[in-house]
Design a protein around this nucleic acid. Structure first.
Length: 492
RNA sequence: GUCUCCAUCGUCUAGUGGUUAGGACAACGGGUUUUCAUCCCGUCAACGGGGGUUCAAUUCCCCCUGGAGAUGCCA
């Protein structure tokens, strides 16, 4: 079979984890099958569709490195691939269904529909949804409504009897009694635009889509779509409903759970390869053991059979782990380039790096690499190098159970050793400071920690000698001297 | 309310009619280390419940329970 799959988002918000996972699965399936991956923009909601969202869609897919074989920008033999540009098509097909008695005009006002819905909810009525009020309108009644200037919608005449079944690759047969199928859903809105159900069925058919892979939230609409295919006399495609991505609380993943838009993940400093890898492991697995895959590898080994049926919880911690793993794989140069924008944004370096800044950046990378979970972590990690640190507090300078006088001595002697370092190696320097600790009868930490706090302003920092080297000996010395002064001031 | 789907450690998952139910993240403990991180080692931890079928069910069937989704002139 010549596989043709599509990702068909509506540009009504930023691309999020769930949507991207669907896009990825479709893309990988197409690649693994040697088929085509098609992008189609479902902008039939004129109220909510925005150019920003559309741009975000393009940006996101580009960032992830997902290229579509047919779709907006690149074109293709079944275009246009933006539904608003296919406007006339839907009208045509909708009216065809009306002409054949398979759909009808409905003149019900929003007010009536709202009241109806409210009443049904309140009375917990068995029958929820449209009451098919206009299903059997006579020609005279219709003329009367038209004369009032009411713009009708077109609704599908869902059969009242029988049941409809569709097959899902993962779930098997799923059927629904027709009376439980959404009662006569709107196909064409009063503004002339199609609803999802209509546009989706028409385009999938016209574009020769062979497999529909979409989130499980669409399962209830499956039978409805089958009814539509039957009404048009078309062969339905193969369905494969993907498990949903949930938040920690088991609810559909949303902003409440943290960042969900890919744009946010990118801004925080997640790498596309990490996001792709992790997201692909929610709802799909290779063998339960192997967990690292590149985009290309996924495009080789992906298969529908290994998709899980149950929804999966999005685990931010595991994403962090993947991201750290991928960051550590970067070369110095790659990581420097990835980190630079964050340092620029923090105002630490210029967009056009001076040669000193370039040198500093390069020597910084090996020091921070294994400490980063996300790229933006670098900012706080190296802030002490670029900005004057706050005066360390006395308590901060003092290691546990260590008095001020010894600490002062430790600082002063350390300072001497550091200044008199000459061309001694870091290892040699470390030896000397250790010896100092021994002389003073304190732990090694009792020497290193005060110096660390004095120089970096924090008990947590990159290795001390690296920190001093990056900061510059002069600045380091004056910060240590200041610490001594602070401690001495406390004695008086 | 009604309909549909789902159900293995806290999380992502592997797996089988007979297994010590495997791996990873997290958590916790230990080691390496100048702190942190990395790295290494270890510990904790699961087949939701009840009926069947069977010599044998986590695995097959049914019910229950639990969870989710749908029920829009949103997709």
């Amino acid at each position: 079979m010549n596989v043709r799959v599509r990702y068909a988002p509506s540009p009504t918000g930023m691309q999020h984890i769930g949507g991207v996972r669907t896009a990825l699965f479709n893309y990988f399936f197409a690649r693994a099958q040697g088929g085509k991956f098609i992008l189609r923009v479902e902008d039939t909601d004129q109220e909510r569709s925005t150019p920003e969202a559309l741009q975000d869609l393009y940006d996101t897919l580009a960032w992830l490195g997902v290229e579509w074989d047919e779709g907006p920008i690149v074109g293709g033999p079944y275009g246009p691939y933006i539904q608003s540009e296919r406007f006339g098509l839907y009208q045509e097909y909708a009216h065809r269904l009306v002409a054949e008695g398979k759909a009808y005009y409905c003149y019900c006002a929003h007010e009536r529909l709202d009241a109806l819905r409210e009443e049904q909810t309140e009375s917990k009525s068995q029958q929820q949804g449209y009451d098919r009020h206009c299903r059997e309108l006579s020609q005279e009644q219709r003329n009367a409504r038209e004369a009032e200037g009411i713009k009708p919608v077109i609704r599908l005449k869902v059969p009242l009897e029988g049941k409809t079944t569709f097959h899902d690759v993962l779930m098997g047969d799923i059927s629904r009694r027709n009376k439980d199928v959404s009662p006569d859903p709107v196909l064409l809105k009063s503004d002339g635009f199609p609803t999802y159900h209509l546009a989706n069925v028409i385009d999938d058919h016209l574009m020769g889509i062979t497999h529909i892979m979409r989130a499980q939230e669409w399962i209830p609409s499956g039978p409805l779509h089958i009814i539509l295919y039957e009404a048009f006399g078309w062969e339905p495609p193969i369905y494969c409903h993907l498990p949903m991505v949930m938040g920690k609380d088991g609810q559909k993943l949303s902003k409440r759970h943290g960042s969900t838009s890919v744009r946010d993940f990118k801004a925080k400093g997640y790498l596309p390869e990490a996001l792709i890898n992790y997201v692909s492991m929610v709802g799909w697995s290779y063998d339960g053991v192997r967990e690292f895959f590149t985009r290309e590898e996924l495009g080789q080994v992906f298969s529908l059979e290994k998709i899980n049926k149950a929804p999966g919880v999005f685990d931010y911690k595991k994403l962090d782990w993947y991201n750290g793993m991928y960051i550590r794989q970067k070369s110095d140069q790659e990581l420097a380039d990835l980190l630079a924008p964050y340092l620029v944004e923090a105002g630490f370096i210029h967009l056009q790096r001076t040669s000193e800044e370039s040198t500093l950046l390069e020597s910084l990378v090996p020091v921070v690499r294994e400490r980063l979970k996300v790229l933006s972590d670098v900012v706080e990690m190296v802030r002490f190098l670029f900005e004057e640190i706050a005066e360390p507090a006395v308590e901060q300078l003092l290691p546990k159970n260590q008095e001020i006088p010894v600490t002062v001595t430790a600082l002063e002697k350390s300072l001497e050793i550091i200044m008199a370092r000459g061309d001694a190696s870091d290892a040699e320097l470390e030896l000397r400071l250790s010896a100092l600790a021994e002389q003073l009868g304190i732990k090694i930490n009792g020497v290193f920690m005060p110096v660390r706090v004095a120089v970096t302003g924090s008990t947590v920092s990159p290795p001390l000698f690296d920190s001093i080297r990056l900061l510059g000996l002069d600045k380091a010395i004056s910060r240590i001297e200041r610490a001594v002064t602070i401690l001495k001031g406390e004695v008086r």
